[in-house]
Structure formats: structure tokens, C-alpha cells
Nucleic acid binder design. Structure first.
Lengths: 228, 228
DNA sequence: CCAAAAGTGTTCGTGCTACACCCATGT
DNA sequence: ACATGGGTGTAGCACGAACACTTTTGG
């Protein structure tokens, strides 16, 4: 077929909440271009490999994250002619929301990998390619997702308390929420949380019920930021 | 660089409201594969051409739509290995919301182009490639957009009445809305509508005020479908 | 007992729904 | 006059914000 052919890659915005901050996974580039700079994990799509499949493979390769424990969704595609100095590369970005995991193992072409607060990454100018813009879009998507879906729980461990979930919202949104109203809201919303029956005192004070992620996909009505 | 290279195309889900139905623009394929079948308008991205740029070019080529009059946004990217029988093609889908326009002129490689109700397109099995899935995603995105953004007005002519805007919502959502409450909601929402000062009696009855699209990007609070 | 955090009850404001009602035009 | 649709007023309800208050643990 007579048409231009481009390299196609996937890049991952992997977000988690740790140390009271929203953090993204970044890898130190071991090869040119941008050697030594931080970049989002990612790589080229292989022949006969689907996009989602490529994203899952890269996630596993560069982070050791097992697919079942994280939420992954397509974010957007970036293909400006000049975004990669080597050649034309179109990249499909994926957004992954993960619980707080140990620092991942470095992959083959990544000299180093670490969690870094998104605030620092977006304020600085250290990210390779157009990865700062991709990260910005991913963070904005994540913030919206918390409003309209129960995906805040994707940042929590398998079993978690309402207070832990609330901390996720507060950190991602950068806003304080009333603990009592938040509790009522999330426990009353059908299929948001599934009680385990167990309790924990790890947060201090009166024992808190433990929950698992429920089966709900959407939130009706949504949990809105700022009441305007 | 040692990596697979793929053809990259853009496909357009161009939606409008006409004849009391949500319609999509489809073109009759003049070449193999799927010769004679309906498909979404689209084409390959050229060297040194951005994705958004390619989408705008295809929109102009195949429909004659001038860029300023429609809303265009990226929808999603589809790249399953088998989605095009010829070779590996990754397609970036764009969603365009347009007012009711005359039937567009056929483009170079499109034997015929027409508006077709999405209901019929999704019910039948006439769309080439995975375009039915892309259209379904586009329609779902459009439905959500009406809730959280003032983009319903993108389906209206430059100047429109509140009743015309309401019909758009009713047709896209497939639900009836209370005319009085809808009127209050959209006119009270800051920057949703900009009054022109003129009136029209084209809908019959008492003259209705004419409005233009306002400058708002988002709706707070949203205009929700079903009250659960 | 006290501190701390979980969880409940209650009040108040706001926004949506439903519908009664009036307004301004065409025929 | 009357039909038709535009537009306003208002009562009732649902839900979120704010906060007083009770519950249950650890120290």
C-alpha cells in the first residue's frame, strides 16, 4: 500500500499515591535521545501485538506490576511530526492507576526507575519528549475519573478503610474533604465498596471497617470537586 | 531505528442532528477492501503532518466542512493487528460535532457520502473494518459530552433557540426533557449561551430569543441524564 | 480517664422536578 | 378567538455541606 509508515509506541502514565503525594512512575533513559533524562515508561509496539497488549507488556517489563492489580485505560495519542528527533513516532499513551507498590525493578533499556511526585515532574523541565504534556493529561484524566467513577479505590490496597480512600481523594484533588460526609457518600453508593466484615485499628482510634473495591463502573450521582 | 513500522490513519466520527435523528457521516468505499461497504471518512496520515491536522484535512476533503464551524476532538486509537486485512494499520479516531449541513460532496476515494442515522448503522452490519465499534464509542462520548459540557450547541446553527437546543438533547439522549426546566437551566448557566438580542418565530407560537454558543468549556453543575 | 478516629443524626441551603400560569405571536 | 410554543413562579423533594454528637478503640 502506498502510504507513509511510522513507528508506533505506547507510553504509560502510571500513577500511585504514596508519601502524601500523587506520584508517577518515571524511568531514567539509558539511550539517546534524551539519554539521562527522565521519561515515562514505554516502548515500541511489536508486529502482531495489540496496543493494549503492548501497554500491558511494557507495564510488566518495566515495573513488574502484575496486570490484575491495576486499572489501565487508553489516555490519548500523540503524533506531532517533531515529537521525537530521530524519526516520526506516534505514541499511544495509557493511564494506569496502581496502589502503593515497592519501587519497581529497572527494565532492559531503563537504567533506573522510580516514583516521583507529579508536582515536581510538571514544575521541572526534566521529562523527555512531550512526556510532560502526556503526564499532565494523565493527571487531569485521573482527577476527573475520581469524580465520575469509583476508581479512587484503584489507588488503595486490596483491603482498605474509608479514611484511606478519602486520603486518596484529598491528595489527588489537593482538597480537604469532610470525613463524615465522605463516609456517608461512599458507603451509601451502591456497589462502590464491598464490606469484608473485618476491621482494623491501623489508623488509630475506633476500629474502621475494611472494604474491597465494589463492582460499580460509574458513580451516580458523581462526587464533585468544588461546589462552584 | 529497529522497530516495526505501521500505517497510521485517522478516521472521523462526524455527528449531526437532522430529521429528528442523530446521524453520522459515512462514505461508500470505492476501493478494496470492503469495496461498496459504508465506512467512516478517513485516510492515511502524511509525512510531516500532525494527527489533528490530518483529521482536519480529511474532514475538509471528504465533506467540505470548514474547520471553524465544527467541534473536533480526539476520540481513541484502534490498533488490533487484524483490523485491516491488507496490512497493520493503527487508526486515530476523531469525533466531530457539526450542525445540520447539506449533504457533502464526495471526495476522491469515496464514491458516495451521506448522513445516516446512527441507530441504523449500529443495528446493521454494513460498516467496514471495526468502524461500528468506533462509531459506538463516538456516540457514547457525544452523549456524555452533552452532560458535562455545553457542546450540544455544536449541533445547532450559528444562531439557535433554546427549543432547538433542547431537541438536540432529546434526540441525542433519546429522552424527553421538560421545556421549562431546560430553558431555565441553560439560560441561567453562566457563559453557556450568549443572547443575540434577536428573536424568531420559526418554531411557531411566541417569538423565541436567539442565542449563540457561549464561551463556557464545562458545565457546573452538569446536566444529568436520568435522575437514577 | 483522655485522645483519636469511626460513624450517625440533624439542620440548612441549593438545585432539580413537576406543574400552574402568563406572554406573544400566527391564523 | 384560539392554538402554539416561549417563558416565569413556586412548591416539594433529594442531596450535599456543615457540624454536634455518640461509639470504640489504644495509651
Amino acid at each position: 500500500m502506498e502510504c507513509p509508515k511510522f513507528a508506533v509506541s505506547v507510553d504509560l502514565v502510571v500513577l500511585t499515591v504514596r508519601d502524601e503525594a500523587l506520584c508517577a512512575l518515571v524511568v531514567r533513559r539509558g539511550v539517546e535521545p534524551y539519554r539521562g533524562a527522565w521519561a515515562l515508561p514505554g516502548g515500541f509496539v511489536l508486529d502482531d501485538e495489540g496496543l493494549e497488549e503492548a501497554a500491558a507488556r511494557e507495564l510488566a517489563e518495566e515495573t513488574g506490576i502484575r496486570p490484575g492489580s491495576v486499572h489501565v485505560e487508553q489516555l490519548a495519542t500523540y503524533g506531532s511530526p517533531g515529537r521525537d528527533p530521530r524519526t516520526r513516532v506516534v505514541t499511544v499513551a495509557y493511564l494506569a492507576l496502581a496502589p502503593d507498590l515497592p519501587v519497581p525493578a529497572a527494565g532492559s533499556d531503563a537504567a533506573d526507575a522510580r516514583w516521583c511526585p507529579v508536582e515536581a515532574l510538571l514544575a521541572g523541565d526534566e521529562l523527555a519528549f512531550d512526556h510532560a504534556a502526556i503526564l499532565r493529561d494523565g493527571v487531569e484524566r485521573a482527577r476527573s475519573k475520581l469524580e465520575y467513577s469509583p476508581l479512587g479505590a484503584a489507588f488503595c490496597a486490596e483491603e482498605f478503610t474509608v479514611a484511606e480512600l478519602r486520603r486518596v481523594y484529598e491528595i489527588v484533588w489537593g482538597a480537604r474533604l469532610d470525613p463524615r460526609n465522605f463516609h456517608r457518600k461512599v458507603t451509601k453508593t451502591e456497589a462502590f465498596l464491598e464490606p469484608t466484615g473485618a476491621t482494623t485499628t491501623r489508623d488509630g482510634g475506633r476500629p474502621a471497617q475494611l472494604f474491597r473495591r465494589g463492582s460499580a463502573e460509574h458513580l451516580h450521582p458523581p462526587l464533585l470537586r468544588r461546589t462552584t
